[in-house]
Nucleic acid binder design. Sequence first.
RNA 1: GCGCCGGUGGUCUAGUGGUAGGACAUGAGCUUCCCAAGCUCAUAGCCCGGGUUCAAUUCCCGGCCGGCGCACCA
Length: 590
Amino acid sequence: MSEDAASETDVQTSEKLVELAKRRGYFFQSSGAYGGVGGFYTFGPQGAALKGNVEDAWRDRFAVAEGNMEIDAPTIMPEPVFEASGHLDTFDDMLVDCPECGESHRADHVVEDNTEYEDAESLPIPEVEEVIAEYELICPSCSAGLAGQAVETFNLMFATNIGPGDSDPGYMRPETAQGIFVEFPRLKEYARNQLPFGVTQIGRAYRNEISPRRSIIRTREFTQAELEYFIDPEEDDPDLESVADVDVTLYPAREQNTEGSSEIETTIGEAVEAGIIGDEWVAYFLGIAKPWYESVGVDMDRFRFRQHLSGERSHYAADCWDAEGKIDGNWIELAGFANRTDYDLSKHDEYSDDRFTIFRQYDEPKTVERATVDPDMSYLGPEFGGDAQTVVDELETLAERDRSAFDGETVEVELEGETHELPVEKTGFSVDEETIAGEHITPHVIEPSFGVDRLVYTVLHHAYREDEVAGEERTYLDLEPEVAPTFVGVFPLQSDEDLEAVADEIVADLRDAGLSVTYDDSGNIGRRYRRQDEVGTPFCVTVDYETIEEEETTVTVRERDTTDQKRLPVEDLDETLAEIRDGDLEFSDI
RNA sequence: GCGCCGGUGGUCUAGUGGUAGGACAUGAGCUUCCCAAGCUCAUAGCCCGGGUUCAAUUCCCGGCCGGCGCACCA
């Protein structure tokens, strides 16, 4: 797929952002004192606050506002869970290195592409090595022979042992989703066995990436916010009307495969109508995700939904769309919206001891006639000896298949090629009416899965601004008040006990009002404004001599983006600021 | 995992076979000071290991970490 070339300014933005993130405490590489580890990042004070606010915003929208329930499952689960989920097999790559050019190739792909083997992935390693030698397979890059090269497996899951010894292997979950699926039998009870219902989880997931890249965007430990929405595929429909008018930028598979085609601007309603989004449930969640992304500060000019190409779909997904954000001219995945159908629940149903189904009651109980047998064993036993049970099985099958066989005085039963006749009265044959209230079905799962770290990065990147104030260059983060780590900075204009005393009081008042406040009395006032600009604090309050000299106690409130200032009474400062934060009041309207 | 490039205070960076200089930031103080002001002082650095050498931050090898490309991203 062709991508826009990364523009120079964007690259610079990215570099500056990473530098700012380190310097100001948004995020930085972990364990730096020990040389650092690849793919692990620590969110500093600002970053942790921002991330927490983003998670809260997600929780409000996808758990609370949708009436879904949130859980918090362990990050380590035993091996059988991942046998069932398929991660043990499909997360396992076979790699073979070329002795000449050093290229690393998927051994299973090399085998499948050049032999009649179709599912090389399922072959044991020694056998794959044998096949490579036997067919004298060559390196796809430089054509050097690969025979004799070791095939190594690499599973992207972090392995560990549960308890002492290594008899009980476990893995760090590679997606939070499994923690939800595994607990389905209990979760459905909490949902009172009623579909549809949704379960969310915000938590860490782990993938031992071969090559972590691009700072926080591809790490080995990351945070996901996932919703597993369980539906009855035949009965449940989403409230599409509520999102029909949401404008979206879509990049369907067809456009991706067509030279010269690009994204299309449409609405959720029209896209469903036109069959562009095939799954209405996926469409619904795209419809609520878009405005949510906008609300936390993703630039909608650098945002789109892209449909997965058939080849890149997961082993479970029927149709899949990604939310993507543009960074440095490249699109990165922010979320995946997949209809996982009944894949996960069926697998866990099959592999575990529990039932991963829901009882669907019919509108009207169905009455069916059922032919059954209840053979007289005191007759069959002596008559057939050790074959008696086989005869019973045959009778049961026959009753279901062809009840007319029991119409006469006797019934014929096939036993090891021989036909036996026995009296119908000894079979206990009867046709009864049975009432069936419903059936057990395996729900389908719609999964919106959000990457939190990548979103935080995107929000920061899209918020990065440079401008000029009074002839001086300025860097600031145009963060939404809802997610900004700090909402207001409070300063005494200069070092002065009287000013500091008033400022201290204001800090206490604002914190009482539930606002996130920082206090700073160090250095020139302009420098303090710039410090707050750089971490994206929307407002600053300054206590000056007018505050303590005039009759009415007032302070200046300064807005980050415009640097405009207004003089406001201290008395209702907390209420005014809270209104602004909650979006009920505009600074410019005060 | 492979290839190329790189790693110097908190951040950015100069430089060197004889252990380092700047800028910004940070802290203390002075200047009645609303947009990175000035002055004084202070804190703080050559990624790790091995080799060559009298001497290595510098040269060589290996590792770790980062950026980019390939592969990978269920």
